[in-house]
């Protein structure tokens, strides 16, 4: 048996939720025996997701050639598994794009094998020459 303490981020109350799992890998990685400490059901589903497959949207920047700004900020189009964050950062690190860049332009597809694209989150016009 293993116990994990999490802070629910569903609302400002920030309940400390305890999740008890057994060591047998279940269909989602681990088997959850109990979830306690949550004040409302949202805390229960949040904790189950955090323990079995936590995901995050990753935001960063990539370099731009010929734009009005040296960088454009980018984001994963949807949340990716938390343990892929650094793989995603490594994949983004060496990318350079050419201006103009528009919000939603695809910067990288299927980043770090997550099936999720990295897209531009800002418009960068071409620099006037």
């Amino acid at each position: 048996m293993k116990q994990q303490e999490l802070t629910c981020i569903g609302c400002p109350l920030g309940c400390t939720v305890t999740v008890t799992t057994n060591d047998l890998p279940g269909p989602d990685g681990e088997n959850i025996l109990s979830v306690t400490g949550n004040t409302c059901p949202r805390g229960d589903s949040y904790a189950r997701k955090e323990v079995t497959c936590p995901t995050r949207i990753v935001t960063s920047t990539v370099r731009v050639r010929g734009g009005t700004s040296p960088l454009v900020n980018v984001k994963t189009a949807s949340a990716i598994p938390r343990d892929k964050i650094f793989d995603c950062m490594n994949a983004i690190k060496d990318v350079t794009v050419t201006a103009p860049v528009h919000i939603g332009d695809r910067i990288l597809s299927n980043v770090a094998g997550t099936d999720v694209d990295v897209v531009a989150a800002r418009n960068i016009p071409s620099a006037e020459v």
């Binding site: 802070t7 981020i9 400002p12 995050r56």
Partner: peptide, 11 residues
Amino acid sequence: LKRNIVQCLND
């Protein structure tokens, strides 16, 4: 915000 404590520090 709680969300930032969890996702910026705890993670």
